[in-house]
Simulated assay, not measured.
Amino acid sequence: MLSPKNLHAYPKFWPHKKGLVPAPLLPMSRKEMDELGWDCCDIIIVTGDAYVDHPSFGMAIIGRLLESQGFRVGIISQPDWHSADAFRQLGKPSLFFAVASGNMDSMVNHYTAEKRPRSDDAYTAGAMSGKRPDRATTVYTQRAKEAYKGIPVIIGGIEASLRRIAQYDHWSQTIRRSILPDSKADLLLFGNAERAVVEVAHRVAAGEDIKQITDIRGTAYMRQGIPEGWTVLDSSEIDADKSLVHPQTDPYADTSAKDKQGCGDKNNQTKPSKIDPNQGAVQV
Rank of each mutant, 00 (worst) to 15 (best):
M222A: 04
E32K: 10
R164E: 04
T214S: 04
P4A: 01
I154R: 02
S119D: 09
M59S: 09
G191S: 14
P22V: 09
D182E: 15
F57R: 04
A196P: 00
P22T: 09
V200C: 13
P55M: 00
E114M: 06
P152S: 05
K131W: 09
Q142E: 05
Q224E: 15
A160V: 11
L187P: 11
E67M: 06
A220V: 07
S235A: 14
A281W: 06
S77G: 03
G280F: 06
A113Y: 08
L162E: 10
Y221R: 13
T112K: 03
P27T: 06
W38M: 07
G102A: 06
I216T: 06
V198W: 06
K92I: 02
M28N: 13
E146H: 15
Y123C: 05
D182R: 14
L180G: 01
G91L: 07
I210W: 05
Q212F: 06
A113C: 14
A240I: 12
K274S: 13
L7F: 04
G126L: 08
G74L: 08
T231E: 14
P272M: 06
G207V: 02
D209V: 09
A193R: 00
Q224G: 10
F96K: 06
D53K: 08
Y51K: 00
D105W: 01
H54R: 12
R135D: 11
L2I: 10
D80A: 01
G102M: 04
K274R: 13
V73L: 08
M1A: 07
I151R: 12
G280A: 09
G74C: 09
A193D: 01
I158R: 11
G70K: 01
A23T: 03
R88W: 04
L187Y: 02
K17Y: 11
Q69E: 09
S129A: 15
G102P: 04
R223P: 10
A201L: 08
G102D: 02
T174S: 14
D134V: 09
D85W: 07
M33I: 02
T231Q: 14
Q212P: 01
I275M: 15
Q69Y: 00
E114I: 00
S119W: 02
